[in-house]
Design a protein around this nucleic acid. Structure first.
Length: 424
RNA sequence: GGAGAGAUGGCAGAGCGGUCGAAUGCGGCAGACUCGAAAUCUGUUUUCCGGCUUGCCGGAACGGGGGUUCGAAUCCCUCUCUCUCCGCCA
């Protein structure tokens, strides 16, 4: 959620930047500013009345103690006469505040000035490609879903039986590979200074609102209606919300956390080759990194996080590229996002395995996450997060790219975790 | 699932109709003492909204919402949550 003060004081700039995200509803922005003006006017009126009432109440007390009942009664009547106006203004103020917030949450975050304009993924800007060569596998290359069946390591049919499409069962060395990747990623993150935490995997409404999943993306989460809880779509939600309604001391910044959770996504509306095999699942494993930063340092930090994620994929010896998302492809809450895509050797396409974003104050304004500066003034902190990494497409690329006659080669860095060098 | 108790500042904990944004203790910050530290003493220490001369003024907040009253942390209703005991259970 943008800050109303920003929208009010920098209306033109805000509109220009929102246009990069293809948000052009200037009427809505004007409506917000009008509502805000009205809100402040109402508050000034209400405050004046309340101040008057407070004075009367004090005087009544004094008069009663002095035994001056007649005059006290007189004042009481005066105050009573004001009650209706107070109640009306109170309701009007509450309505204006509700109105303003309900409109404000519809405005996406303003993209950073670096963000390129564009409509879709085609307009994203490649900023890096690592030196691992794209494998030449020839015509015999099998897609990962065939390899999974051949080596009996992932059972999609069994998952269908138990839950439905998008809930695979990992078996044998496949299950072991999952565990190996999770441990590998957590160990790396810990070594890089992120503190490991294990959050709940169901979240309440306030948490969903805090990071921006609610109210807009309600349909993307599994909802446990009996308790009004949601299954986490990413560890970002519970972990960032640790700091909802918190004021950090400046010495406590930055906060660096990492968490493994299963992630649950309904993926309503997805279809076709995108959902084949491991490409898009309803449940998958992911290690996430979350950082809370001083506003002056958040972009520097974003680069550090980007380099960190790159180091993970390098260690897995997978070819990948990093793209800076264009305005049209960015999420609602992000100010700048880097996507990481690994090359899928049999599908011949790039698969997104990580997304690293700076949300600036968009999330912290929603969840009132602040820090205290050297002068004890409070400010909204910046929040950032990134996948480090999401497992399924990494597994897909590992299976496809590393397939050999004898089996699937496990990258060296992972062998201590898998305990085997070949999937066969 | 059943019964009971409770929710107050960073923490502990008082207040139970007015002078209470809130005693006291602990913690934090600044200063005094000290070569330094501890101890001790003094001062200071919530957040949000609005206004303007940016330091002050006004308003709001004692779990959330509503009510009674001239006036509510205090009384009433309601919701949520927490704790204790019993039951069940990894």
């Amino acid at each position: 959620m943008l800050q109303i003060s920003y929208l009010r004081d920098h209306t033109e700039v805000a509109m220009q930047r929102l246009a990069i995200k293809n948000f052009t509803d200037t009427g809505l922005i004007q409506q917000i500013i009008d509502t805000d003006t009205e809100r402040r006017k109402i508050q000034a009126e209400l405050d004046a009345l309340l101040a008057h009432q407070n004075r009367i109440a004090k005087q009544v007390g004094e008069l009663m103690r002095a035994g001056n009942k007649a005059e006290a009664e007189d004042l009481k009547n005066k105050s009573t006469a004001m009650k209706q106006s107070v109640a009306e203004l109170h309701d009007k103020l509450a309505a204006a505040e509700r109105e303003m917030e309900s409109l404000l949450v519809k405005i996406p975050n303003t993209p950073s000035p670096k963000v390129p304009a564009g409509k879709s993924a085609e307009d994203n800007k490649e900023v890096h490609r690592n030196s691992v060569p794209v494998p030449e596998l020839g015509k015999k290359a099998k897609p990962h879903w065939e390899l999974a069946e051949q080596y009996d390591i992932i059972d999609f049919e069994l998952g269908n039986k138990i839950s439905g499409a998008g809930f695979p069962v990992y078996k044998g060395k496949g299950a072991r590979l999952q565990r190996a990747l999770i441990n590998f990623f957590l160990d790396k993150a810990t070594a890089a200074g992120y503190k490991e935490v294990q959050p709940p995997v169901v979240i309440n409404e306030d948490s969903g609102f805090g990071t921006g999943q609610l109210p807009d993306k309600e349909g993307q989460m599994y909802h446990v209606t009996a308790d009004n809880l949601y299954l986490v779509p990413t560890a970002e939600v519970p972990v960032t919300n640790f700091y909802r309604d918190v004021i950090l001391k400046h010495a406590e910044l930055p906060v660096k956390l990492t968490a493994y959770t299963p992630c649950f996504r309904r993926e309503a509306g997805s279809y076709g080759k995108d959902v084949r095999g491991l490409n898009r699942l309803h449940q998958f494993d992911k290690v996430e990194i979350v950082q809370i930063e001083h506003p002056d340092k958040s972009y520097e930090t974003l680069e550090v996080m980007k380099d960190y994620v790159a180091s993970l994929i390098d260690a897995l010896e997978l070819p990948f590229r990093i793209v800076m998302l264009c305005g049209g492809d960015m999420s609602f809450a992000s100010a700048l996002t880097y996507d990481f895509e690994v090359w899928s050797g049999a599908q011949h396409r790039w698969l997104e395995v990580s997304s690293v974003s700076n949300f600036e104050t968009f999330q912290s304004n929603r969840m009132k996450l602040r820090y205290r500066d050297e002068k004890n003034k409070t400010h909204l902190a910046h929040t950032l997060n990134g996948s480090a990494l999401a497992l399924p497409r990494i597994v897909a690329a590992l299976l496809e790219n590393n397939q050999t006659e004898k089996g699937i080669r496990i990258p060296k860095a992972l062998v201590p975790y898998t305990g085997f060098e070949m999937m066969d």
